[in-house]
């Protein structure tokens, strides 16, 4: 079931090209959106969330065209969105904040029940009476996620929701996102390849405003097959290389003859599809 159909989306901010000829589709399940800073991920998510329009291209979300007001409204009614820096009204309790968002989503019948439901879904039953300023970063993100889940949206857009969370919080968040992905479309923007590996059945890699990869996580890892090897010393020709815990160097690039090739990870595949200049920049 296709939720999003994007064809040739482009957007420029003055002289900067944020997106160029971006085409993809989204179906049910969790799709990861990977890319370095400035790749255009947030811009793409904001277009999908109807916050800004694209300059060019064709976009249909849930069968509606967000270029017109009626289409935008139709999309927003079935959209859950957690921005990169959502911001919170610090003096609201968790319940009040989600309730406030529920009102702005025009949820009128059984609103309080719905607020309790989503707070329960993100595990904040016991914290709903606490002021947001008293909550930890992870709990605040869960409040934001609860707001995104109001009214059972068909499309959920999450922009780097695990940034700043400690490992335990990140693990909890992954569980939540995995649950959310059941029966609806979730687009998850992240820097964490581990998130993609554990949550996504599909991944899109964006760099410099263009889609560089669109496929399954295993296929992304496969992009680096034959280009990852280990060595006891730093390999001269490697585009990237780092010492691992066992003392060996993990190298990506064109392996020398006889190199000890290893099975690539998603991270290796991601680094491989990023252009050589960016890769060189990271390696240095």
């Amino acid at each position: 079931m296709t939720t999003v159909q994007a064809e040739g989306l482009s957007l420029r901010f003055r002289r900067t090209t944020a997106l160029e000829e971006v085409s993809f589709t989204l179906d049910d399940g969790v799709t990861g959106l990977l890319g370095p800073n400035g790749a255009g991920k947030t811009t793409l998510l904001r277009i999908l969330a109807t916050a800004i329009p694209a300059d060019a291209g064709r976009l249909r979300i849930l069968g509606a065209d967000p270029r017109n007001a009626a289409g935008r409204l139709a999309v927003r009614r079935r959209l859950g969105y957690l921005p990169q820096n959502p911001g919170f009204h610090q003096h609201f309790t968790a319940f009040e904040f989600v309730d406030y968002i529920a009102i702005l989503k025009e949820i009128v019948d059984g609103r309080h029940d719905e607020v309790r439901r989503v707070l329960h879904a993100v595990g904040l039953d016991d914290q709903r009476g606490k002021k947001i300023k008293a909550l930890s970063g992870g709990m605040r993100q869960r409040v934001g996620l609860a707001a995104a889940l109001l009214d059972d949206p068909a499309l959920v857009i999450l922009d780097e929701p695990t940034v700043g969370l400690d490992p335990e919080q990140r693990l909890r968040f992954r569980e939540l996102i995995a649950d959310i992905g059941e029966g609806r479309t979730v687009l998850l923007s992240t820097h964490q390849t581990e998130d993609v590996a554990t949550l996504c059945r599909r991944v899109i890699v964006l760099n410099q405003g263009r889609i560089r990869f669109d496929g399954e996580p295993s296929e992304l890892a496969g992009m680096a097959r034959g280009r990852v090897w280990t060595s006891q010393a730093r390999a001269e020709g490697a585009l990237a290389g780092w010492r691992t815990g066992n003392g060996d160097f993990h190298n990506i690039g064109d392996p020398p003859p006889g190199a000890r090739l290893v099975e690539p990870s998603i991270e290796d595949g991601y680094l491989t599809v990023i252009d050589a200049a960016a890769l060189a920049g990271r390696a240095s």
Partner: peptide, 24 residues
């Protein structure tokens, strides 16, 4: 293409939402 499966909110929803927001 997945289409909107839920009926859109009633005509009165915006008005009721305004009143709910005003109360809050």
């Amino acid at each position: 293409t997945t289409t909107l499966t839920r009926p859109s909110s009633s005509e009165a929803a915006p008005r009721r939402a305004v009143l709910a927001l005003a109360r809050m």
